[in-house]
Amino acid sequence: MLEIITSGAIPQRHGFFTRKGGASSGIFAGLNCGFGSTDQAEIVAINRARVAEAMGVGADGLLSVHQVHSAEVVTVTAPPGGSVERPRADAMVTRLPGVALSVLTADCQPVLLSDPEGGVIGAAHAGWRGAMTGVLEATVDAMEAIGASRTRIRAVIGPTISQAAYEVTEDFLQNFLTEDPENGRFFANGQNGRYQFDLPAYGLHRLRGAGIGHAEWVRHCTYGDPDRFFSYRRTTHAGEADYGRLIASIRL
């Protein structure tokens, strides 16, 4: 059985899928939806087909991008035809019914957005780099360009790495302080001269600064719950060769 985390803030069909209910095995055990992993491609396709079915679309209707930690946003205006190469971007928006926008994560923030009255939705992949360079604001701008009103937009951050699990260096901290001295609020002192970064709080700050109507985090940490979530950082600490990718999706 698939496990799907949802939010009452978004009325459209949507979900942050956990790793439960998939066909993958070994270090990818569960619902690994990342073709970029070294998992068997045919097994990943089975997992993605299960997600598509849960979202009420065909396998071709589960849309994704080639994520590159950028602020690039794709506006989907027509159903994809045949085998189309995925654009290099980190967010999608649409007002097109019958397709499901999706993003993959394994500690980064999956963000689903909706303007229910305007009939516009969005999905964004926002790690620290993408969030800092403006992918969330760019997604809101792209939604507004096709008819959304930013004051009506609701955004939900799905399972992501929490502050307690996100240890960073002095250089990382300085990078954020250079961008904005007020960013110090998202860091706490850690051990051995390191710091703990609050990625979801930073994401909420960027979303609210964009002037949207509502923003929330589902408050699930990917690092701390290995039975439910894949985690790049946990895999690195365990010395494993690769990691699965979680999927989040939304449709009109």
Rank of each mutant, 00 (worst) to 15 (best):
P181L: 11
L101G: 06
S64V: 09
G81P: 08
A106D: 15
S114Y: 03
Q163H: 09
L113T: 03
T133A: 10
M132Y: 09
V74A: 04
A123L: 01
V74K: 04
N183F: 05
R95M: 07
Y195E: 11
N192V: 10
G98N: 06
A89R: 04
A123R: 03
L173Y: 11
D60H: 06
P87E: 00
R86N: 14
V65I: 08
P116S: 11
L136Y: 00
G61S: 02
R95H: 08
F186R: 00
V74R: 06
W128A: 15
V73K: 00
D115M: 08
A71K: 13
A106S: 15
Q191N: 10
R86E: 15
G184T: 07
R194K: 12
C108V: 14
T151H: 11
D115A: 02
Q196E: 12
Q196I: 09
V168R: 04
T160Y: 07
R95A: 10
Y195A: 10
R185P: 15
L199K: 03
N189L: 13
G122D: 02
A106K: 13
E179V: 14
G158H: 04
E179G: 10
T139Q: 04
T169Y: 00
L177K: 02
V103P: 07
F186H: 02
L96W: 02
L112I: 06
Q109A: 12
V135S: 06
R194P: 11
C108R: 12
P97S: 01
G119D: 00
S83N: 15
S83G: 15
P97G: 07
P79S: 06
R95D: 11
V76I: 15
V168L: 05
V73E: 01
Q163W: 07
F176T: 05
G134N: 05
R86M: 14
F186G: 01
M132N: 13
A78M: 08
E182R: 12
G81I: 12
N189Q: 15
L199S: 03
S83I: 14
R129A: 14
R185D: 14
N192W: 12
L62N: 03
M132H: 11
P79W: 04
M132W: 07
Q67A: 13
D198F: 06
A131P: 06
G82I: 00
G190T: 01
D171I: 14
T77Y: 08
G61P: 03
T139V: 05
S64M: 13
V99I: 10
G118K: 01
L199T: 00
L63W: 05
I161P: 02
V140I: 09
N183Q: 05
V120K: 08
R152V: 10
V120L: 03
G147P: 05
G98H: 07
A78P: 00
R129S: 13
G147E: 00
F187G: 04
G127N: 15
A106N: 15
E170A: 15
A126R: 03
Q191S: 11
S83K: 14
H125D: 11
G147Y: 05
Q163T: 09
R129I: 13
I146C: 05
A91H: 03
W128L: 13
A78F: 03
D180L: 05
L136G: 04
T77C: 09
R88T: 12
E144Q: 12
N192T: 10
A89E: 02
R86S: 15
N175S: 15
L112A: 07
D107Y: 03
F172L: 05
N183A: 05
V93F: 06
P87A: 03
A145G: 10
T94L: 06
G127M: 10
R194W: 09
Q174N: 13
V76T: 07
